[in-house]
Amino acid sequence: MTNLSLRPSITALKKANYSNVPSHWVTDWLLYVLQKSASFLITDGDYQLTESEQIQFETGIAQMQSGTPLAYLTGKQAFWSLEFEVNEHTLIPRPDTEVLVERVLGWIDNHVQSDDRNNSSKRLLDLGTGSGCIAISLAHELQILAPNRWQVTAIDYSQPALEVAKRNANLNDVSHIEFKQSDWFSVLKDSEATERPLFDVIVSNPPYIVNNDQHLDKLKAEPLSALVAPDNGLGDIKQIADQARDYLIHGGLLAVEHGYDQGELVRQIFIDFGYDQVETIKDYGGNDRVTWGVYG
């Protein structure tokens, strides 16, 4: 740790090399510690950190070098056009998942909004919602696209994750979401309702990583149960594709996120379970990331 009697300037910290910590994390963490905007780093490069600021900064750098993501230190992560609370109970939302939100909104606009003239109510289900980033982002946009028409249900097995998701809904002023604790579809199957609920769209970013994947070491701070799936990473996707058929309306859409090397396998799963119009969509890096299909 730097000698506190020689407090570093912003310029010195920006030039320093912190092993295993991305440079943009260092910059963003510095801004968080200082509670300043990005312009402050340009205009006030000679500013020297106070003793408390230096301790907080260097403690955070040490935590990041030990594997703690920046988002867990700041407690927040931007996603879509919104900001989300995150903690150790939730995965950190990633930009590639925005592809799922973007394409599902496009599909709804093209296939639901334009083809349905009676303004009937619609339902969307998000399985394994975690921080709620997918469900809340979709609900936020659907409220603009079709006010008061869409009801969103968000399900997660982890009650602590659901508590985070509920706070994120309030944080982003999204009220038309129902949160349920469940192992995938179980709570819907066991519902006391006389009729099984049907959805126009079902989305999910389920666990899809193989338990011995080398990339897991970089994700060790995040909840393992939200990352790893059996059957070579495809077990949860198979279960969702199978059971979703009982909860989709005729012509309803199922869209799931998956690994960059799983596109062909996931397409085959969808085809085997009778989905039509099966397609894999690439993320912003050009990798297979989302597969969807229409059922019925």
Rank of each mutant, 00 (worst) to 15 (best):
E141N: 06
E141F: 04
Q143Y: 07
Q143G: 15
Q143W: 05
Q143K: 07
Q143L: 02
L145R: 08
A146M: 09
P147T: 09
P147M: 00
P147E: 06
R149S: 06
W150F: 07
Q151Y: 11
V152F: 03
V152Q: 03
T153C: 11
A154Q: 07
A154S: 12
A154P: 02
I155T: 01
D156T: 08
D156A: 07
Y157R: 15
S158E: 10
S158W: 04
S158G: 15
Q159K: 15
L162I: 15
E163H: 14
V164H: 05
V164E: 06
A165P: 08
A165M: 10
N168D: 13
N168M: 07
A169T: 05
A169Y: 05
N170H: 06
N172H: 09
D173L: 08
D173M: 04
V174W: 03
S175P: 02
H176R: 05
H176K: 02
I177H: 01
I177W: 01
F179I: 02
K180R: 15
Q181E: 13
S182N: 14
D183Y: 03
D183G: 14
F185G: 01
K189E: 15
K189Y: 14
D190Q: 15
S191C: 11
S191W: 10
S191N: 12
S191A: 12
A193K: 10
T194M: 05
T194L: 12
T194I: 12
E195R: 01
E195I: 04
E195C: 02
R196A: 08
L198E: 01
D200A: 07
V201I: 08
I202F: 14
S204F: 15
S204Q: 04
N205G: 07
P207C: 00
P207M: 01
Y208N: 00
I209K: 05
I209Q: 01
V210I: 06
V210D: 11
N211P: 15
N211E: 15
N212M: 06
Q214T: 13
L219P: 09
L219V: 12
K220C: 11
E222F: 04
E222D: 12
P223E: 06
L224V: 09
L224P: 02
L224F: 02
L224T: 08
L224G: 03
V228Y: 03
V228N: 03
V228A: 02
A229L: 06
P230S: 11
P230N: 08
D231N: 13
N232K: 12
G233D: 08
L234Q: 03
G235I: 05
G235Q: 11
G235V: 09
K238M: 10
Q239P: 07
Q239F: 03
I240Y: 13
I240V: 11
I240M: 09
A241Q: 05
A241K: 01
D242F: 12
D242K: 13
D242Y: 10
Q243V: 14
A244G: 10
A244R: 00
A244T: 09
A244L: 07
A244Q: 04
D246W: 06
Y247V: 11
I249S: 04
H250W: 06
G252H: 00
G252K: 00
G252P: 04
L254Q: 08
L254E: 05
A255G: 08
A255F: 03
V256E: 03
V256Q: 02
V256L: 12
E257Q: 02
